[in-house]
Simulated scan of single mutants.
Amino acid sequence: MNEAVVRKEIRGSVAIVTLNRPTKRNALSKQLFIELKAAFSSFPSSVRAVIFTGEGKHFCAGLDLSEHRHHEPFEATLYSRWGHEIVNAIRYCGLPVISALHGAVIGGGFEMISATHIRIADETAFYQLPEGRRGIFVGGGGTVFISRIIGPDRMTEMMLTGRKFDAQEGHHLGLSHYLVPEGQALEKALELAEQVAGNAVISNYLMLNAIGHISQMPAETGLFTEAVAQALVMTSSDAVTGIDEFLVKKQDFNFKAAE
């Protein structure tokens, strides 16, 4: 039996989804796509956060081009739409997804991490969109999601030239939220996953879903949607508990400060 090309591990309230084709730099094969979509389609109710990473020296080197030498136009369109389904499965799985990045973050791999909610890179990470140099075009949501992070102007330049950004340059562009020493991305991801897993479920859900949608709405529509989202959270039992705990801690702090 062939080894799974996507591993899924549950550690308490945290799930770890790992691309597992290290000898191919975790290139995105059809089988990997199938297993990745399945991995993000469901999680046990105990899971409150997800870490997304890659086995070996690289996160992901993009599409396995050996599978894409010959396509008919309709077939290629359907394959791109399949890629969009996978990116949306990551973005809208209902849980905070934290990517732990190292080595190559290229092409389709780059597109996938643009759908994650917190991105942690170690100093070995580098980013590239070489599609223009290979006579192809992005097809996994990059024109929407990568361009929202770095802007369409910068994305156009990256694709035209195929230039590579190292971890520090990528961090300045907003491609990572945290930059850590080599080999420490997963450790930092676990730390943050435990932290966000402690948030109220409804708060996390609305932060993951409402903010992205509101950003695409006209201002007044967005403000109304924000008010509804805020009302749903503020009237939940989790909000009552959280506010009461804060007030008790504040009262205790003020009491000790007055002593």
Rank of each mutant, 00 (worst) to 15 (best):
H213K: 06
F246C: 13
F255C: 02
E194C: 09
I150M: 04
E157Y: 13
N26Q: 03
E72G: 12
H58Q: 00
S29T: 15
G141E: 05
H213W: 09
A210W: 11
S41R: 11
A257Q: 14
R69M: 10
V105Q: 04
Q251S: 08
F137E: 04
F137I: 03
D166K: 01
T225V: 08
Y205I: 10
G109L: 08
F43R: 07
V138S: 05
Y178L: 13
G174D: 07
I118H: 03
A49H: 08
Q195C: 14
T221H: 12
P130C: 02
G108T: 04
P73C: 08
L129C: 10
R163M: 14
F52M: 08
I90A: 13
E220I: 11
Y127Q: 07
A115N: 04
A258W: 09
T156N: 04
F59V: 02
V233T: 10
F255A: 14
H70T: 13
P96Q: 03
L247Q: 13
G183K: 11
L247T: 00
E85A: 13
I51P: 07
K164I: 13
I136P: 00
G183F: 13
E226R: 09
A104H: 14
N254K: 14
I146E: 00
F43C: 02
L179V: 11
Q195K: 15
G140Y: 00
Y205F: 14
L232T: 09
G54H: 03
T235M: 15
L65M: 11
N199K: 03
P22Y: 09
E191N: 10
N2Q: 14
I211P: 01
E9K: 09
G62N: 04
R7H: 03
G183I: 13
V233E: 10
E182N: 07
E191A: 11
L208Y: 04
I10E: 12
E194I: 02
N2Y: 13
T23P: 00
Y205K: 14
L36I: 02
L247C: 06
T53L: 01
